[in-house]
């Protein structure tokens, strides 16, 4: 089954590359603005800083996501479990989550400066809301029978939170985090425009400004590939932490 999936995936990739190469060769396109796959590949050899850019971006993404997801889990359990918190804090988060992260880029720059705080802060903000809403829904949706049984057995509050609430919403936590990290990826380029001097997002923005589209496409592909790897990691985490749930097929 896994071999079939890999086969289909690689075949699709191969087809896309062929169509891309043929299109560039057949149509009268500007090769600088629309480079072929081969030109993009050769541009990789022209990019010695690519490895350090990837590492720096991943560090920012991981730290920002950990902060965002941790806070989201905490607040998600709080607002999902305690009615007053839902009506106060929950409503505030619901209001804030509709503010596009990109609209906050100038504010983050003003408040947190051009150092790592602003970039990591923006990534944390972006990954927070999808995770929070998922955890909140998961906790709120816990079956009432578990709550009643826990109440009737007079279990300790901490045990109840850990064994029932937390474990019962693990799937929501992992899936919410998966979406949250996905959103953070989409904001990485904007985050690294906050005065970065290295990173995948920064490099994409810089290369666009000097019309090095061949290298820019290479970086965009790398960004997509890393995003896919992260997504698969989350799927693995989901299977590991919630073996009793059936993972929906993609």
């Amino acid at each position: 089954m896994q071999k079939t999936t890999i086969f289909y995936g690689l075949s699709t990739l191969f087809m896309v590359l062929i169509i891309w190469q043929i299109s560039v060769s057949l149509f009268d396109v500007n090769p600088i603005l629309f480079p072929s796959p081969l030109e993009v590949l050769s541009a990789f050899y022209d990019s010695p800083e690519i490895y350090s850019d990837i590492i720096i971006s991943m560090i920012r993404l991981v730290i920002g996501s950990i902060i965002g997801i941790s806070l989201a889990v905490f607040f998600g359990v709080l607002t999902g479990h305690i009615s007053v918190m839902d009506k106060t804090l929950g409503n505030m988060w619901n209001f804030l989550r509709f503010i596009p992260p990109l609209a906050l880029v100038p504010l983050f720059l003003l408040w947190l400066g051009i150092g790592e705080f602003s970039k990591i802060g923006l990534l944390a903000w972006t990954s927070f809301f999808p995770t929070w809403i998922s955890v909140h829904a998961g906790v709120k949706g816990l079956e009432n029978k578990y709550l009643l049984v826990a109440k009737s057995l007079s279990v300790k509050k901490t045990w109840f939170l850990k064994e029932i609430v937390f474990k019962g919403s693990t799937n929501y936590i992992v899936n919410g985090a998966r979406v949250g990290v996905g959103f953070a990826f989409s904001v990485l380029v904007a985050a690294e425009m906050l005065g970065a001097f290295a990173g995948v997002g920064y490099r994409i923005s810089f290369l666009q400004s000097v019309y090095r589209i061949d290298r820019m496409i290479g970086y965009i592909i790398i960004l997509g590939a890393i995003g896919l790897i992260f997504d698969r990691l989350f799927m693995g985490l989901s299977k590991h932490f919630t073996p009793w749930k059936n993972e929906p097929k993609n």
Partner: peptide
């Protein structure tokens, strides 16, 4: 030299805040 690319307005703010 650490080169940071910003817009002119952002540069002024960053210099005031000693970020650059």
């Amino acid at each position: 030299v650490s080169m940071v690319y910003l817009t002119p307005n952002e540069m002024v703010t960053a210099l005031i805040k000693k970020d650059i």
